[in-house]
Design a protein around this nucleic acid. Sequence first.
RNA 1: UGGGGUGUAGCCAAGCGGUAAGGCACGGGGUUUUGAUCCCCGCAUGCGCAGGUUCGAAUCCUGCCACCCCAGCCA
Length: 561
Amino acid sequence: MTDPQAPDAPSHFIREIIRSDIQTNKQGAGVYTRFPPEPNGYLHVGHAKAICLNFGIAQEFGGRCNLRFDDTNPEQEDAEYVEAIKRDVHWLGYEWTELRHASDYFEQLYQYAVTLIENGKAYVDDLSAEEIRAHRGTLTQPGRESAARQRSREENLDLFARMRAGEFRDGEKVLRAKIDMASPNINLRDPVLYRIKHATHQNTGDAWCIYPMYDFTMSLSDAIEGVTHSLCTLEFEDHRPLYDWLLDELPVPSRPRQIEFSRLNLGYTITSKRKLNQLVQEGHTGGWDDPRMPTISGMRRRGYPPEALRDFCGRIGITKNEAQIDFEVLENSVREALNQSAERRLAVLDPLRVVIENYPEGQTEQCTAANHPFREELGSRQVPFSRVLYIEREDFMETPAKKFFRLAPGREVRLRFAYYITCTDTVRDEHGEIVELRCSYDPQSLGGTPDGRKVKGTIHWVSAEHAATANVRLFDRLFLSANPAAEQDYVEHLNPESLQVLRECRLEPALLDAPPGARYQFERQGYFSVDTADSAPGAPVFNRIVTLRDSWAKASARQRA
RNA sequence: UGGGGUGUAGCCAAGCGGUAAGGCACGGGGUUUUGAUCCCCGCAUGCGCAGGUUCGAAUCCUGCCACCCCAGCCA
């Protein structure tokens, strides 16, 4: 596995920049990064990329990394989200150096704003939002200066103090940087620094009624924390001149460097907090942690191991290309982690009854089953075998297709960890549907066969009398479109069959005591986890994390096509 | 159309003037009591296009083309 920290992990341009900065001592000693989410929703895979980058880089260079909540817009934010975010970062395997909130700096930021005013670099404007927009100009035309731009420092200072004191209503006044209304970079056309919001803040309560904007907050918070490398996504690239302008104009304690990289897009999924929020609010999924959601909490609930996410983030690379990663890359990381760590069990998802006619009635014996094919230290368990079994319905074909190696009339197969059986007859119900197979077994075939005969197929099974019955949920992609975000209405592209609940699954008895969160491979089927929310003691509910690769399914699909 | 970015295989991605790494996907073969895993092998005379510089260019120069981002008192 390529962990981002591994010495042989592929390098990328940000790592190169940092190496060079260290060599030239450009950003001072040490590396300090930060992950700065806004607590306005749950984290998703895209954030996992940013988390692995920021925390991973810090780890790699023996540096530090803060978790900082960018909580400057009280109307959007909630304490529920800050708790969820902390949980997600921890689950991914990272520990922050300091836990901060941008709101911790509100007083200091306010003083910085005052300094700007004192230096003639900011002014209070009383234009309305619409007027400001009209004054801003367009992409090709310069903006116009507001009359308020000429205000004296004294008046600006007084007005700004009164903004803070709550003398104005929302939207009545705003603090703006005095830069250049004719700049070809629209972000430099006197950007708003502070706005009035009489709202209760999740961290500071009612202490403030003015709140700083993103650009102002981000660069100064980075500087306050001594961040050396401020990593963010591409859309902030043309905000960098403003980020740097603030550092130039104010007596900041450090000089962070902003570097942008492209955000993660994953095939068949959505990585937008806003859109994910809509899915939750409109009830299209069971919540933020629905196992079909590309949120970190959804993936955790589904059973993805955190090391799989880290491995994935290490594989996709860090560049400025707008990339859309195939979903298979993620699944590959998940399978690789689980193949290594998950114990194997036998479970029949779609049961078909089998009676072994030459097996003594009422007899039970224990078959020894290895818990893992290449990790002997994980030991083995006993699986009961008896006269009546269940096998997977799709492991039997009355008229076998070409290259079908499983059970069929007259065919012999291996029952995993047990005997060879041969299908001798079929039993049908009144509709003509096959409801039972009659088979014979070879008592000599337990560890091998005395005559050395080989069989092409091995199938899984469970003893009917001993089996537990459980619900198993199969998940398919949430969207049918490869790029739902690009569709006119992504909600229309939801996969109506993304969730399938199987209620008649038969499990080997050992699975009955599986603890919530445990992950197993159901042999020949896939990896499954015990749902942490819906399972009860003695009544586990299983989530399919990911299927096994299935070259038979692929080949037979190709045959049909 | 002003500004800022990006173009290397189906999808990612190395490459930093010396003759196209690696991963995913895909195809073929071997091992196998999971059609899994594992192991081999194949997969760009080609790097957005066109010129130019050079003994030599994905890398340097010039000109084009395509795509993405920016006109919130969101982040």
